[in-house]
């Protein structure tokens, strides 16, 4: 039973207030994209056992979508942040690196982005 802090309204929301939305920071591929690009956008998922960046909506609260950095193996939450960003905030990355020194896989769909 997760609790995640909504970065908009500041509420420490119980999981029952939230709607999950799976992997974050996906890049949309529309018309003109290659079959491989479109397939990767729609289906290929990192599904990591460990640090994961994902989408949540404070559905039964303020209604806002936000993003969370969470460990799928322990359910530890490293932080939440607004959905309107193209990369995770530096302080969350720093926190993850401190808590999970072995973490390499990055936040981007292609596994990059640990910098």
């Amino acid at each position: 039973m997760l609790t995640l802090e909504c970065p908009y309204c500041g509420v420490k929301a119980d999981e029952t207030e939230l709607a999950p939305g799976y992997e974050a920071h996906l890049k949309r591929f529309g018309p003109g994209s290659s079959p491989e690009e479109f397939e990767a956008y729609m289906f290929a998922r990192k599904n990591p056992k460990g640090v994961h960046f994902e989408r949540w909506r404070h559905a039964y609260g303020c209604g806002k979508w936000f993003l969370a950095a969470r460990c799928t193996a322990t359910l530890e939450v490293f932080g939440t942040y607004p959905a309107q960003v193209s990369e995770p905030p530096a302080d969350i990355i720093k926190k993850i690196q401190a808590r999970r020194p072995e973490w390499k896989s990055g936040w981007q769909p292609d596994g990059k982005g640990t910098k």
Binding site: E15, T16, Y22, P48, H52
Partner: peptide, 14 residues
């Protein structure tokens, strides 16, 4: 099922 990635073999009680 839960709607989030999880490897703990523990689901959400609700």
């Amino acid at each position: 099922t839960d709607g989030f990635n999880n490897y703990t073999q523990r689901g959400s009680f609700h």
